[in-house]
């Protein structure tokens, strides 16, 4: 949406509109990067339900896909994965 620049462009009531990335590309906050080993994944979808950032999407076959533009790298998915299919790697590596 267009961000108002002058007072005249401001709406009568302040209203925020839903936007993906309202805080920008939050993936830049990340220190550790989660990497999924799809050969180990059992498609239990636990990483998807526990992701605080909704950065993991569920594909049609229930396998997870991480959106690195918005993943903050908290590591909950790697910690909760029952088969340890997600590894956390330092960003520079």
């Amino acid at each position: 949406m267009k961000i108002p620049k002058t007072l005249k462009e401001m709406p009568l009531t302040p209203l925020s509109l839903p936007t993906i990335g309202s805080m920008g590309k939050t993936g830049t906050w990340r220190t550790f990067r989660p990497i999924i080993d799809y050969s180990k994944c059992t498609k239990c979808t636990l990483c998807w339900i526990y992701c605080p950032d909704a950065a993991i999407t569920r594909r049609d076959d229930d396998s997870p896909e991480i959106d690195y533009e918005y993943c903050k790298g908290c590591g909950i998915c790697a910690n909760e994965c029952p088969v340890k299919a997600i590894a956390m790697k330092r960003e520079e590596e």
């Binding site: 605080p52 999407t57 569920r58 918005y70």
Partner: peptide, 25 residues
Amino acid sequence: TIKDLPKEEYLLKGHAACAGCGPSI
């Protein structure tokens, strides 16, 4: 079960919560 839950997200990604935020879950 977890797989019955809808895929739609109404909390859009790229929000301002800290990494690992419990309330956003």
